[in-house]
Simulated scan of single mutants.
Amino acid sequence: MPDRPIRLFGDPVLSSVSEPVGAIDDGVRALVADLLDSVKLPGRAGVAACQIGVGLRAFSYNVDGEVGYLLNPRIVDVDGDLEEIDEGCLSVPGLWFPTPRHPFARAAGIDLDGNEVAVEGTGVLAQALQHETDHLDGIVYLKRLAPERRREAMRKVRESDWF
């Protein structure tokens, strides 16, 4: 399946809390296939379902050659003090800002067979797990920025050619 267009900041689906995945049917399987196809494109560490216009709790990730997905993900553990890490977002193209993230994260959810699974990591994987779970809670990373930096980010969003 082809990758799906990415929704941009300002689209209401990005500020809405995603609904849990219920029955795992052909629609959910197709969504996972679309998420995996979408995240395999160069420069992508994660894609949340809402970023392709679907309000369900699902995301895919692609970090250091490890490609996968989680349905109904939730962050179950973080470790380490928050650190500001340069972060960008496919829904906020071309803009990067230091964003507070924990250096370790573990997310749990289910797979297409309904089995409980977990993904954990440090560095970019930890950042991606936190970032994508935020998306499913209706949070775009700009909301995580310190107030002064957020004002600067919003100014740059307004000045962008895509907004």
Rank of each mutant, 00 (worst) to 15 (best):
A48E: 01
R151P: 01
S60H: 06
L112W: 11
R151C: 03
L82A: 12
K40H: 00
R106D: 12
H102W: 07
L129T: 05
S18Q: 08
A33I: 01
S91T: 00
D37W: 08
P5R: 13
Q51E: 05
D161R: 12
V117P: 06
E84D: 15
D11A: 15
G65T: 05
L112F: 08
R29Q: 10
W96L: 09
P5M: 09
L82T: 08
W162G: 06
V117E: 09
D134L: 03
L90K: 00
H102M: 11
A105C: 14
F9V: 10
N115H: 13
D34M: 03
T122H: 12
E116M: 08
R144H: 12
A33L: 13
P98G: 10
A146I: 09
G121I: 10
P20G: 03
V76N: 09
G80W: 04
W162C: 09
P100G: 09
R151E: 15
F104C: 01
R101I: 08
G10S: 02
N62F: 04
D81I: 02
L8P: 00
H131P: 03
P103R: 02
E84N: 13
A126S: 15
L8C: 06
V78Y: 01
F97V: 11
R57D: 03
G68A: 11
N115K: 14
G109S: 08
D81A: 14
L8I: 12
C50H: 06
Y141K: 00
I6F: 00
P20T: 04
